[in-house]
Design a protein around this nucleic acid. Sequence first.
DNA 1: CAAATAGTGTCTCTAAGACAATATCAC
DNA 2: GTGATATTGTCTTAGAGACACTATTTG
Lengths: 273, 273
Amino acid sequence: MDSEKEFLAGYKLSDYERPSVTADVAAFMISSGDRESYRHDPENKLRLLLIKRGGHPFKGMWALPGGFLQKGETIEECALRETQEETNVTPTALMPVGVFSQPDRDPRGWIISNAYVSIISEESVRQAGSDDAADAQWFSISFDCDDIGSYHLHLSYDDVELNAVLEKERSGFGRTSFRIKNSGGLAFDHAAIIAAAITALRNEAKNYDTIFDFLPEKFTLTSLQRVRETIMNVSVLPANFRRMVSSYVEETDEYVRGEGHRPARLYRRKTVK
Amino acid sequence: MDSEKEFLAGYKLSDYERPSVTADVAAFMISSGDRESYRHDPENKLRLLLIKRGGHPFKGMWALPGGFLQKGETIEECALRETQEETNVTPTALMPVGVFSQPDRDPRGWIISNAYVSIISEESVRQAGSDDAADAQWFSISFDCDDIGSYHLHLSYDDVELNAVLEKERSGFGRTSFRIKNSGGLAFDHAAIIAAAITALRNEAKNYDTIFDFLPEKFTLTSLQRVRETIMNVSVLPANFRRMVSSYVEETDEYVRGEGHRPARLYRRKTVK
DNA sequence: CAAATAGTGTCTCTAAGACAATATCAC
DNA sequence: GTGATATTGTCTTAGAGACACTATTTG
């Protein structure tokens, strides 16, 4: 036992070159859009936070928020810190997506990225106030597969449009990775990271567990359904959706009124299923 | 554009301290045991490759195979290389489990581990021949939750027995992480890595997709069922199992004879479902 | 023949999809 | 009343679990 102490006292990590390690965060939010009429429910949009790069490399292009791992913190803590720095909001969920370690993925040198999805509720973004830096924007996002197996990632904000094209590279173990055919104006390999993040998010949303993180504590079943439909890009009949989530939620005595139609009961996430 | 070139030419990654990065591999195999009688099918066991540490720290304790990421390779390539070096076998599947980055997880210093599951067929291990180093052994493995929410990891090989106790720490996004209550003689935080690896493996085996990687090209449906049951630690009626996998496999014209009972047809994985 | 696995057919049960019908509000 | 969403109930369908039954081989 002593000899182990001695060993460690004299130990130095070898002088092999070490990579820099970063955490990059795909922060998703669901925002409600405008109403078509006073009684029509607003349409929801899935949004992703992107930062306009102020310096080289990829100057002026859009990228995921992220930063270098600091000594004394875990990668999760680093991802959390980066999310908070960019949004002034603590995410309601933070989940790993994958490690991106192609040696040439960053022109600055050997930099490995640990990608995370972080989920943020619209409510908390409103409360945090719009830190209206033009270099950080919530892009609305769509991601779909066409007939010939190409995946189209479309990001837009005001008059900025980013269109990336990807191909599925590998799939398994609940994760899918993509190869970039056209980065569409996104910095680094971030198009592939975003594609993997959305795929992982959609995969997770199947389980009726992640979707609550986009909403405040109390919510209507319709808003919960809209969240799921927005993420998954599918639609379900309301009657069936209610049945499916019934074991995950519990009623409150409150209602939402003044929407131009029958008031909806507010529900709460049930702690134990 | 030129200015970006200039920038990169003069760029140096900051002198912040960087972590060492490793890939650690949980290599799983399913081995068939002895027959109770000439006509009784052998029982399968899930096995995990562990290496006895020859040097400090944790000298003499058992650990997952792994090693430092080298310049010019991706983490997947590093995990693949480590698997091949230890087993002389190319795994049929390699899948990420998570990143372990607690600053104090390695007494030698700041070392981050990227954990992978690699799946190896028993056939290929036999072919590679037993490189009978006593410091690398296939431990049989069991992992279960008790009534009070503690998880018991049991590893055994000959008269070596390792018993670790863990607690579920966090779950979500198809991954579960564990906290070590008793490392049971395993080095570093490898008990937690192994627990996460088994959980991820079981989770994946639900999809009838990973299980084929444990078997040779042609197999009987019963052997396929045994593989799944060994991993998941559940049992299904043969009739129902056949129905469930029927869309994933296709018949061959070959049979396995001489087993003391009716010959079984060999099947092949169906390429497109 | 006995013991063991291989393989088929069918009933049941549950969860999801389809759809019809009623309820309730703001304007 | 009209137009929208809220909410409930029921029929249908697909897939998994249970189980009974037949088939085939070796010692």
